[in-house]
Amino acid sequence: MDKLLIERKRGGINPLKGRGEIPTASLSDATRAAVEAHFQRRTKAAPHGNEPVYLLTRVTAAGKESVEVPEHLMPAGLVGAVKDELP
C-alpha cells in the first residue's frame, strides 16, 4: 500500500527525532495535492527562523522519493502524525 512517511529532521527546541506515516489513500484531496506540489518543486524551500523542517517520503510500488518541507509549508494535518521517539 502506498504511504507517506513524515520525519522531523531538525528545528525548534525539541532535539528528538520524530516520525510518523500515513497511508496515501487516507489523505484528503487537498492534502494530496499539496504534497504533490512539494514533490514537483525544483528548489528547496528555506525555513523561517529556526522552525522545524520535515522530510516527506512517499513510498510506492515504483520506489521512494523524498523532499524537505519547512513547518510553514507543511499541509495541515501531517504534522500531527509525527510522534517523538525517546533515545
Binding site: 487537498a30 495535492a33 512539494h38 514537483q40 495541515a76
Partner: peptide, 29 residues
C-alpha cells in the same frame, strides 16, 4: 496552511487543470 499556498505558480496552474482532483480543490489552486 493549506498546501496550495506558497508553491510555484506553475504547479498551482497544473493542479488547477488536473481533472483527477475535485473541483473545489482545483478552484482553490
Amino acid at each position: 496552511r493549506s498546501g496550495c499556498f506558497i508553491v510555484p505558480k506553475s504547479v498551482l496552474d497544473r493542479l488547477a487543470r488536473d481533472a483527477s482532483l475535485k473541483q473545489a480543490t482545483r478552484t482553490a489552486c
